[in-house]
Design a protein around this nucleic acid. Structure first.
Lengths: 226, 226
DNA sequence: CGAATTCTTAACTCTGTAGTTAAGGTTTTC
DNA sequence: GAAAACCTTAACTACAGAGTTAAGAATTCG
């Protein structure tokens, strides 16, 4: 590939700055609470330039939301299996951390609130985030079933159960009450309990797995940073 | 109590009509997508009259949302225990039906989308709906624990698990994709599976309970109205 | 019935904001 | 270094929608 000219470079730079700025403003103020002046200010450029890059507010919004696909996908790449309980624990925390970030929550609120006006966005989000994640979990669970460590009929339901057990309560709370988002300590309660119930219902050797889980959970609460 | 005069009657009538109309319009178009002209039309009266009853759009919105408390509470009154599995099954369906209605989903989207602008609404909703429901489930689960039919440490977590297992997946899907809300048949899959997992993890005699559950589930799918 | 009250109609003000335009400055390219 | 491309500033248009006002019709009450 040939080196990009200065002009092309600038253009890409500004596009990125606009999308970043737009994300911040939209996530904080909602679609109709966001003014194009505010977006221009957040992106550090002028309104006519903004309109040079995106012909309308709606286009900008769509472009921004659809552009998030790539960012979200990164969360769901799964490395290095180290034993089922360990993997599930690690996965649960990775996802919990990602999904419970204030910006992610704002974004989720934004999508949910605007989905009637922009159905495409809801579909894109679902396909890039949850569906993809679910597919990843499903594949992993199938693997563990094949290895005789889990027992279930329907992998999709099992994967959704795992998600629901771990995050449905704190996430629902966070969506409805932005000022009382569960902290790490509360989250640990949900995550550990969710895994516990999942293993009790699905593991072929629940006693062993539960012991491992308690060890991991207590290790995490003692060696806690941030 | 003395009989209301004609004037008072009219006043109450119009207030109700305004709130009903506002609910329909807001739920469908969102807060800022809603115009006061549209509300007046939906309520079947004129704009100046509307402003006589509610001094501003914001006031109307708040009044409408807070007024929903009473309506929502009705769902969560629990009658006639007939055996744990039966009760849980009945409860799960009552709640699923209520919560998955299109209007309820629109409302949830509205609240979530506007909660940053109206934090009070989120708190009121949470307190009147989910929290109240949770308290009801918790009380019921405690009862069954005392009777030796369930085993758990933390009733709140158990209640949230039940909720999450049954409804988190279809509800999340419905929130993000209004045009593909799960139908009764899909819902049955989630509800039955959720109860199954819950019983497997929490029941003291899972085998018996699961048999009962399957009987109830198949009875429901065969004798299905609507 | 007659007076008080409350409604409707229809037009109006005011504000906020999407999107545009023109004049002049800055950066990039050759 | 000069021309092309692109940017900023600042003011502008157009419009939608919240909230108001005044004239007159309909209702309610005594």
């Amino acid at each position: 590939m040939t080196a990009p000219s200065r002009r092309e470079q600038n253009r890409m730079d500004r596009t990125r700055r606009i999308l970043d700025g737009a994300l911040r403003v939209f996530a904080q103020a909602g679609y109709s609470g966001t003014t194009m002046d505010a977006v221009a200010a957040a992106a550090g450029l002028s309104k006519p330039t903004l309109y040079q890059y995106f012909p309308s507010k709606e286009d900008l919004f769509q472009a921004m939301m659809l552009g998030l696909r790539d960012k979200m996908m990164a969360v769901f790449d799964h490395p290095s299996p180290k034993g089922m309980v360990h993997d599930l624990h690690a996965f649960a925390w990775d996802y919990a951390d990602a999904v419970m970030q204030p910006e992610m929550l704002s974004l989720a609120r934004l999508i949910i609130g605007e989905v009637q006006r922009f159905p495409e966005i809801g579909r894109a989000y679902q396909a890039s985030g949850p569906d993809r994640l679910l597919a990843g979990i499903m594949a992993y669970l199938e693997l563990q079933r094949a290895a005789g460590r889990l027992a279930f009929d329907d992998a999709e339901l099992a994967a959704q159960d795992l998600w629901g057990l771990i995050l449905s309560a704190p996430r629902t709370q966070a969506l409805y009450q932005p000022d009382t988002v569960p902290n790490r300590h509360d989250l640990a309660r949900y995550v550990t309990n969710g895994l516990r119930v999942f293993l009790r219902a699905y593991s072929t050797s629940p006693e062993d797995d539960l012991l491992q889980l308690e060890a991991l959970a207590s290790a995490r609460t003692t060696g806690d940073e941030e």
